[in-house]
Amino acid sequence: MKINDTPGHWTLELTMEALDIPPGYIYTAFVFGTLTYVMILFCNILVITTIVFTKSLHSPMFILLLNLPVLDVMGATALLPQLLHSIVSKDRSISYSGCFLQALLIHIYGSGNFLFLTAMAYDRYIAICLPLRYHSLMTSNILTRIIVVVWFGVIFIITVALGTTTEFKLCRNNIVDIFCSNPTLVKLVCEDTSVNKNYGIFTIILVQAGPVIIVTYTYIQILLTCMKNKQPDARGKALQTCGTHLVFFLFFQFICIIALMAHRFERVSPNIRRALGVSVIVFPPVLNPLIYGLNTKELQINMIKIIKRARLTKK
């Protein structure tokens, strides 16, 4: 066991939990993981490309949606390449700086998703409940401010949360998970980490509880407005669009809460904790483009056009 008695421990070598993959399944796991990563990159980059290069999609709703695949690619890239390398090489070592960067990117991915999903709910609330004021409340300047505030706010909050752990002395070098996160870095510390834990609770309330309150309020208002709408087609379209967003928000919220709680209860099986952690980073990037691509006709049609153009270009 390596012990670091000074706060400057960026070059310290850490060891992650073993993957416990039977020898006969190593290459199967590697191939499956590689295909999953390729699928995540392809689907999310397709969504990004479609929105960027289709002028008809340059509306607030789709510009806000554009941030989700960017975050999904970030989260998957922070985890899967390093994990795939570990599967083949059986090397579970990682530097403290590499661990810190992985944790930073993964937490930005998770927090960013919550806040952009909340911003999208606000956009739908204005579009459906206050349609006459939509263009004055969601101008390009306001939209830019929302995006900038979310990105810089998330980066600042997460950097502070992780930065506090670097000031403590370490007495362990074993990461109790298959990837790095703030809870796993805190568990390396041999000092009182109550400040970090309290800030972590504050962050959870701000990034998860806050969005739940906002999304709950906006969707209650949207539902009430749709019930009053006498046009079945308009009502059905609004409910379909918002339903897709709400399902993904609730799914992401659910798996994140369970994964976070698993770290706070020692009785939870390590295998369950690992599975939950990986599911938070892998499932949303896979499902997100599929859910929005299949249920948002305008996006779906333009995605197909982009694919057809790419095929014609190759020919």
Rank of each mutant, 00 (worst) to 15 (best):
Y199D: 09
V154P: 06
F265H: 09
L41T: 07
N113C: 04
Y37R: 02
E191L: 05
G112D: 11
I21T: 03
R133Y: 15
T165D: 15
I158L: 04
L130E: 15
T313P: 00
P131K: 05
M227R: 01
S136V: 13
L14S: 04
S181V: 08
P232Y: 07
Y217V: 11
L312M: 12
V186K: 00
C226E: 11
L170N: 03
T225S: 08
A161T: 08
G293M: 06
V247P: 07
Q240M: 14
M39E: 13
K90L: 15
L223S: 03
L312E: 13
Y219S: 01
A121W: 07
V247N: 04
L57D: 03
V247R: 00
M227Y: 11
Y199F: 15
V207Y: 03
G200W: 05
I45D: 13
W151D: 08
F114N: 12
L299A: 04
A161R: 00
L290K: 01
M303Y: 06
S269T: 10
T296K: 00
F202P: 01
N182M: 14
L312H: 12
G98E: 13
K297C: 08
I306F: 10
I222H: 00
N271H: 12
E298P: 00
L260R: 02
Y219G: 00
V189K: 01
L105H: 06
L224F: 12
H9D: 11
